[in-house]
């Protein structure tokens, strides 16, 4: 992995999804950091300054919407692009994600890692 590899922070509590995505993204040359809930996600975001955040909505301790709200208030974080990974895919949920500034979204049951990669590439190349 080269030093100028793009950094992606994956905030997701479902272990298998994390394993799969991490593998897919690393194979493509991205540097991947993982957080298992919103609180850990914000901490790692400040530390690693990722180029992109992949964010789950329903997580223990702090959910994805709260993470996005906290990011909006933080000058250092507000410009990091976010792709929301939604479990329910409810229009209400997706609308909320868009309002909070998510660049893109995907529904777990309707997408797969290949399509996630395509969305990531669209955002950060």
């Amino acid at each position: 992995m080269s030093n100028n590899a793009k950094k992606i922070l994956l905030v997701e509590d479902e272990e298998l999804i994390v394993n799969l995505l991490q593998r897919k993204l690393e194979t493509e040359g991205y540097e991947v950091f993982v957080a298992r809930d919103g609180i850990e996600g914000l901490e790692k975001m400040k530390k690693t300054k990722p180029d992109l955040v992949l964010l789950d909505i329903i997580m223990p301790r702090m959910g994805g919407f709260e993470v996005m709200e906290a990011m909006k208030k933080d000058k250092g974080l507000r410009d990091i692009p976010v792709i929301v990974i939604s479990n329910s895919g409810q229009p209400v949920e997706l609308d909320r994600a868009r309002q909070l500034g998510a660049r893109d979204w995907l529904i777990k049951t309707e997408f797969d890692p290949k399509e996630v990669l395509a969305k990531v590439k669209k955002q950060i190349g």
């Binding site: 479902e14 298998l16 999804i17 799969l20 995505l21 593998r23 897919k24 479990n87 777990k108 049951t109 797969d112 890692p113 290949k114």
Partner: peptide, 10 residues
């Protein structure tokens, strides 16, 4: 089910 789908796809 999503996790299974993703694993199989990969």
């Amino acid at each position: 089910l999503s996790a299974i789908k993703w694993t199989l796809r990969m």
